[in-house]
């Protein structure tokens, strides 16, 4: 009875992963997922950082009113709609009539999405620095911009690193909807295997395990960095 299960398992495994080199759907898919995540995080970093600065300048000086309005609009729309819908709008509507690389579209969509969340993370980081730091910088004669870059930002960024890495973890999982624009990421790869072999268990569990391992590795890194940072705090 037990041996029977083993033999079915073996057969399933061979059928789903070994036959016709089907494992390649997973490895290629994983590469696409990692690529999407990496570049989307970078794009989100640039967008998020810029927005956080604009909003902070506005909060403190009342300048940049129009830009601040645009930022708020962007944050409201992006955080108020599902990322899959944003992805499809960008692919089918905005670039509907142009031939454009799917991966690039996906990076744009996920980057723009992540930017909204990273903006809030940076903003919280900046706000976590006591007001006295800005006042001390300004009282010495530093401009707002100089105080920001030399005194506020180095402290804020350090506070923000763990939260930012958690955003990377979130994004890694969120890119699993890339299949909606027929991009063959990890999830889609597993799904293709399922459609070839008509068995759902093996490929989907494999996909889930791979995500889980990735996330566990990233979480490990977050922990290490957190520990290193808090060590510096005691000094």
């Amino acid at each position: 009875m037990f041996e029977q299960y083993i033999s079915i398992f073996q057969q399933e495994f061979i059928n789903n992963f070994i036959k016709e080199d089907r494992w390649r759907y997973l490895t290629n898919g994983l590469l696409v997922t990692l690529k999407l995540t990496f570049f989307a995080v970078l794009l989100g970093l640039v967008i998020g950082f810029t927005i956080a600065i604009i909003r902070n300048v506005h909060d403190n000086t009342g300048k940049l009113g129009f830009l601040n309005f645009l930022c708020n609009l962007y944050l409201t729309v992006i955080r108020g709609t599902p990322v899959v819908v944003q992805l499809m709008i960008i692919y089918f509507v905005i670039f509907g009539s142009v031939r454009i690389d799917k991966a690039l579209t996906a990076i744009l969509a996920f980057g723009i999405n992540s930017g909204a969340y990273q903006a809030e993370i940076f903003r919280a980081g900046i706000q976590s620095i006591p007001r006295g730091q800005m006042e001390a910088g300004r009282s010495l004669g530093f401009s707002y911009f100089q105080t920001m870059t030399k005194i506020i930002m180095p402290q804020a960024l350090k506070n923000v690193i763990p939260t930012l890495l958690n955003e990377v973890i979130t994004l890694l999982k969120e890119t699993s909807v890339a299949g909606y624009i027929a991009l063959e990421d990890l999830t889609k790869g597993g799904d293709i295997i399922r459609s070839r072999t008509y068995s759902a268990f093996m490929p989907l569990i494999a996909v889930a395990l791979i995500y889980l391992i990735m996330v566990l590795i990233l979480e490990r890194i977050v922990k290490l960095i957190e520990r290193r940072l808090s060590k510096n705090d005691k000094r």
Binding site: P130, Q133, E135, G137, Q155
Partner: peptide, 10 residues
């Protein structure tokens, strides 16, 4: 000079 010193901790 401030009540809370406001030195740059980093």
């Amino acid at each position: 000079v401030f009540q809370q010193f406001n030195l740059f901790p980093h």
